[in-house]
Simulated assay, not measured.
Amino acid sequence: MARARITDDIGIPAVDRAVREAAVRDDVATAVRFTLQLLAERFPGNTVELRVPPFGAIQCIEGPKHTRGTPPNVIETDAETWLALATGTLAWAVAVETASVTASGSRADLTGRLPILRLRD
């Protein structure tokens, strides 16, 4: 059964609270899942698995389909780093250089795909 889609009226305020305030765990969880959902909708596919434990994981980006075992292209990071990447307050290259993100595989690169959501000041 597919997970219910998080609507903009729920997701955007959760992201805003998660990045601007000392957010509660539920806000962080909703913000991570919402931004992962946006990325998967904007860049559908099964080539890259993006993991933000313990809140969520998606498969995205067109290309060769992965069907069994560990995917060949995996990106993993924590919630704080993911939300900074998703909202444009952290650049992909900086996150990779500082090891805030682990990316393995030739297609495990989100350059040009982030930010996925820009918040208003």
Results as ranks from 00 to 15, higher is better:
R5P: 05
I6H: 07
T7D: 12
D8Q: 03
D9C: 09
G11N: 03
P13M: 14
A14W: 05
A14L: 07
V15F: 04
A18M: 08
V19A: 02
V19D: 00
R20E: 03
A23G: 14
A23W: 12
D27W: 08
D27P: 10
T30Y: 01
T30C: 13
R33P: 02
T35G: 06
L36F: 07
A40M: 03
P44Y: 04
N46W: 09
E49N: 08
L50H: 08
L50S: 01
L50I: 15
R51K: 14
P54V: 07
P54H: 03
F55H: 15
F55S: 02
C60E: 00
I61Y: 06
E62A: 12
P64W: 01
H66R: 09
H66G: 06
H66T: 14
T67W: 14
R68K: 15
P71K: 01
P71W: 01
P71T: 00
P72Q: 07
V74F: 05
I75F: 01
T77V: 06
D78W: 01
T81L: 09
L83M: 06
G88E: 10
A91Y: 04
A95G: 15
V96E: 10
E97N: 14
T98P: 01
A99S: 15
A99E: 13
S100Q: 15
V101K: 11
S104D: 10
G105H: 08
G105P: 12
S106M: 11
D109E: 02
L110R: 13
T111P: 00
G112I: 06
P115F: 00
R118S: 11
R118M: 06
R120A: 12
R120Y: 08
D121Y: 07
